[in-house]
Write a protein that binds this DNA or RNA. Structure first.
Length: 160
DNA sequence: GCCAACGTTGGC
DNA sequence: GCCAACGTTGGC
């Protein structure tokens, strides 16, 4: 089993919306970056776990755990002329963009914040892709040791 | 195939 | 709102 981190902006799609969705499940559509696309299409497997991460918010951080419940398939929003993620270069015969379905497993007891993660960037979370300078990938792999450590951070007192 | 210009991401 | 970092585009 592999672990991932998936970014979202709470104003666009937040954990409340995922919790309210049918079967607590949503298609993670709209990713328009080739590196992220490759992971969605080729690497993410049913049963993999993913952190839901809030970016572009007052306190960025990890808010929930999700599970991949459907493996990569073409992102239909790319075919929809009226959709903001429409891409004329993607067609059904040769789709360019892919997505997976994810299901909410649980919210974290409290947000594990970016500053909190950064505090461990030199040791326990060394090499974590999210923490690499200039990283902008919206889907990143998470090493299992890092995953476990972040869950241990969750059970500590919330940082301020 | 290089690389400058441009657009986007996302932390601060 | 600023801006650094990065990806993409397009002229040559």
């Amino acid at each position: 089993m592999h672990y991932w981190l998936m970014k979202t902006e709470p104003g666009t799609f937040g954990v409340e919306q995922l919790a309210a969705a049918q079967h607590h499940t949503t298609g993670w559509d709209g990713v328009r970056n080739y590196q992220a696309r490759n992971m969605l299409r080729d690497q993410m497997k049913k049963g993999d776990q993913a952190f839901m991460y809030y970016s572009s918010t007052e306190v960025p951080g990890i808010v929930a755990i999700m599970e991949v419940v459907r493996e990569g398939y073409p992102d239909p929003t790319a075919f929809d002329r009226r959709h903001e993620h429409y891409d004329a270069q993607s067609d059904r015969r040769n789709p360019r963009w892919f997505m997976v379905d994810v299901q909410l497993k649980r919210r974290l007891a409290h947000t594990v914040t970016l500053p909190e993660l950064r505090a461990h960037a030199a040791r326990e979370l060394k090499g974590m892709v999210l923490l690499r300078p200039g990283n902008r990938l919206s889907v990143t792999p998470v090493e299992s040791a890092h995953w476990k450590f972040i869950l241990a951070l969750e059970s500590r007192a919330p940082s301020t």
